Computed example of a mutant assay.
Amino acid sequence: MAEPTWQETLRLRLVERNARESSYAPVIEQYRRLAQQTKLLKERNASLLRAMGSARPNPSSSTVFVPGTGEDNPVRAAYIASLESQISSLRDELATVYKTQGQNAQRLLAMNETLREKEEMSRVDSESLRKSRDEIAILRKKVEQHSELMSEKDRTAQILHDEINTLQLELSQIEERNQTLTKDNAKLLQRWLDAKQAEVNRMNEANDFYEDLQTRRQAALNKQAGANGDDMGDAASTTTNGSGNGEDRRETGSATTTDGTPSLAETDVNLTPNG
């Protein structure tokens, strides 16, 4: 699991501070060792000087001192004490070195563990980065496909828009034609109705004229029937020639009357209800 950002920043700043502060640590350590060695040497020299001051003179010479001629030589004792002190100091230093080495080993283990965790985190981050790059590549392809699809849809929409404009223009023209045809049909229908009304009026006039002729014909027939009843005795005494002449007169009378007007029979034959 990745550490929070502020913790990682704090850790990096502490590492930078430790590196900055420990940059002169080897020089300081050398100076410390040099000072400790100088102190030991000064103590050793002081011990030797004290031992020389308290040493006995040699019986054979008044000026030369021979160290180590006696078992209780103070120079030798001081030298041994100095060496023992130096050995003790070196042992303490060695213990300190071992302690520091142990601490360094612990720090090395901790750093190795941290390094392993960082490597694992780096591996996880690398895998996540690889997956993210793959997803980005897939998303880019989808974006390109969507862009192409939108371009195609825009072209299709433009084509449809042009077709709609064309159809609207055609529709407006058709509506204008329909309006014109509607007006023409209304005019034609009105003319047809007027013609039919005139025809109906003519037929009504013809029917009225026909009925009038029928009435006049009936009146003439009734009048002729009365006249035939009065002349029936004279018709029986006529001769054969006279009867022939009478037929001629009846045939002629069927065409014209005595005053020269057309008879009713001819009028019925020539006139129809349609005029």
Rank of each mutant, 00 (worst) to 15 (best):
T261D: 07
P4A: 15
T182I: 10
L129W: 11
A95G: 04
K118T: 12
T96C: 11
L129D: 07
A105D: 05
L171I: 11
Q145S: 02
Q190F: 01
L90Y: 13
M232L: 15
N245G: 03
I138W: 12
R56T: 09
W192P: 00
Q30T: 02
L41P: 03
R116H: 09
T267N: 10
Q86E: 14
S82F: 00
W192Y: 13
L90R: 08
E175V: 02
G229Y: 13
V64K: 04
L171K: 06
E29S: 01
K153D: 03
N274A: 15
S237T: 08
Q197K: 08
Y210Q: 06
V143E: 13
A81I: 00
V200F: 07
Y210A: 04
E16S: 06
E21R: 03
V143I: 08
L169C: 08
A236N: 03
S54Y: 11
A236F: 11
R130F: 11
A110R: 05
A220I: 06
D134I: 00
G102A: 13
E148Q: 07
D231N: 08
N245L: 14
G68L: 03
K141V: 08
L169M: 14
L193G: 05
R32H: 11
L160K: 02
S147V: 03
A236Y: 10
D231P: 00
L221I: 11
